[in-house]
């Protein structure tokens, strides 16, 4: 995964991806051949109605699920057919997830949640050896998302916006290349949502982070470089913003 200097390079791509869910006897087709190419450092938002398959697509891109047909590529290399171990590894190192319902681990404090990707990456011993550095890093990240004063709180003691910031910090902790955000503002009021969007935009521009964001809110979607629309199992270009 060597970054080349050619700027408009394809970072993540889905090619003719199909996905259907089984419901008893019936097959519920969700994606009917989706093509998407995201360049490195690009901020793309996917809009679509609820139930149109946005989350499904995001999960496929992030290797949480496998497509029935089609391929998922990272830097032009197919990754959806890799063995389980490599897929876990990619999820840990390359992709960062942010969810609508934050999905923090309730038993862990904020800083432990943020450290979780590193705990998963390293063995107990090597984590223990460099835990000081990791904790320092986590504290810096939480400072950056404005949670420096909430390190040892449990997620249940935080507001929605704070939880989402913690979740973003967790995603960033792994130092990912691609941030996959599934309705990150969906559960927040407009003002807090705007703050989160501000954060994502600054991450995109300052850290050269590729962001693929799913939302059903068009005004939010407009803040990305590019907006695509998912409807009836297919993607259509919807307009270039900014």
């Amino acid at each position: 995964m060597v970054a080349t200097i050619m700027m408009p390079q394809t970072h993540v791509a889905a090619i003719a991806v199909e996905k259907a869910y089984r419901k008893g006897e019936h097959k519920v087709p969700v994606l009917l051949g989706v093509d998407i190419e995201v360049r490195r450092g690009e901020f793309v938002s996917i809009v679509g109605q609820s139930g149109s398959g946005k989350s499904t697509l995001l999960h496929l891109l992030g290797l949480l699920d496998c497509p029935d047909v089609g391929e998922v590529k990272l830097y032009g290399q197919r990754i959806d057919d890799l063995p389980q171990r490599s897929r876990d590894e990619l999820r840990n190192r390359v992709f960062g997830f942010i969810f609508q319902f934050y999905h923090l681990l309730p038993e862990l404090s904020v800083i432990e949640n943020v450290l979780a990707p590193l705990m998963i990456r390293h063995s107990a011993w090597s984590y223990w050896k460099s835990r000081k550095a990791f904790q320092e890093q986590a504290r810096e990240l939480l400072d950056r998302v404005g949670l420096g004063h909430r390190l040892t709180h449990k997620p249940s003691e935080l507001s929605g916006g704070e939880m989402q910031r913690a979740a973003i910090a967790r995603a960033l902790m792994a130092n990912p290349e691609v941030l996959l955000a599934d309705e990150p503002t969906g559960n927040l009021d407009a003002e807090t949502g705007a703050e989160i969007m501000e954060l994502l935009r600054s991450l995109n521009s300052r850290n050269d982070l590729t962001i693929i964001m799913v939302t059903h809110d068009e005004s939010i979607a407009q803040q990305a470089h590019r907006v695509v629309r998912l409807a009836e199992g297919r993607l259509e270009a919807w307009g270039e913003a900014a």
């Binding site: 949480l64 389980q84 590894e89 990619l90 999820r91 990456r121």
Partner: peptide, 8 residues
């Protein structure tokens, strides 16, 4: 969540 963070 753990699996999305890369847990095997």
């Amino acid at each position: 969540i753990l699996k999305s963070l890369g847990a095997s």
